[in-house]
Amino acid sequence: MIPDFVSVLRKAVGPDCLLWLPGVVAVVRDDNRRVLLQRRVAGGPWTPLSGILEPGEAPAAGVAREVEEETGVQVVVERLAAVTSSPPVRHGNGDRAQYLEIVFACRPANPDSAPRVGDDESVEVGWFALDALPPMSERMRELIALVEKDEAAAWFAPSG
Rank of each mutant, 00 (worst) to 15 (best):
T71K: 13
T71G: 10
T71Y: 13
T71P: 08
G72K: 11
G72D: 13
G72A: 14
V73Y: 14
V73L: 11
V73S: 06
Q74M: 11
V75N: 01
V75Q: 06
V75S: 02
V76T: 15
V76E: 15
V77K: 07
V77M: 10
R79V: 04
R79F: 12
L80Q: 10
A81P: 05
A81N: 04
A81G: 08
A81M: 10
A82S: 01
T84F: 14
S85R: 10
S86M: 12
P87F: 13
P87A: 10
P87W: 10
P88C: 08
V89T: 09
R90H: 11
H91R: 04
H91L: 11
H91P: 00
G92E: 03
G92P: 06
G92I: 02
N93K: 12
N93V: 08
N93L: 13
G94V: 07
G94E: 05
G94H: 06
D95W: 01
D95Y: 00
D95H: 08
D95C: 06
A97P: 05
Q98N: 04
Q98K: 05
Y99E: 14
Y99W: 11
L100I: 01
L100P: 00
E101Q: 15
I102Q: 09
V103L: 06
V103E: 01
V103P: 00
V103K: 05
A105E: 14
A105R: 10
A105I: 01
A105H: 13
A105S: 09
R107C: 05
P108M: 00
A109T: 03
N110L: 03
N110T: 06
N110R: 11
N110D: 08
P111Y: 02
D112H: 13
D112K: 11
S113V: 04
A114L: 12
A114C: 08
P115G: 10
P115N: 08
R116K: 09
V117A: 04
V117G: 09
G118I: 07
G118C: 05
G118M: 08
G118Y: 12
G118D: 09
D119T: 00
D120F: 10
D120M: 07
E121V: 03
E121H: 11
S122Y: 00
V123I: 03
V123P: 03
E124L: 08
E124G: 09
V125M: 09
V125S: 07
G126I: 01
G126C: 04
G126Q: 03
G126H: 04
W127R: 01
W127Y: 02
W127A: 00
W127G: 01
W127L: 01
F128C: 07
A129K: 09
A129G: 12
D131G: 08
A132N: 11
A132R: 10
A132T: 01
L133W: 04
P134M: 14
P135H: 11
P135Y: 08
P135T: 15
M136L: 13
M136G: 11
S137D: 08
S137Q: 05
E138V: 10
R139V: 05
R139S: 13
R139F: 06
M140L: 11
M140Y: 15
M140K: 10
R141S: 12
R141H: 14
R141T: 15
E142P: 02
E142A: 12
E142S: 07
I144G: 02
A145V: 08
A145Q: 04
A145G: 09
L146C: 06
V147A: 10
E148Q: 14
K149S: 05
K149V: 06
K149H: 12
K149D: 10
D150C: 04
D150G: 13
A152I: 00
A152W: 00
A152Y: 00
A153K: 14
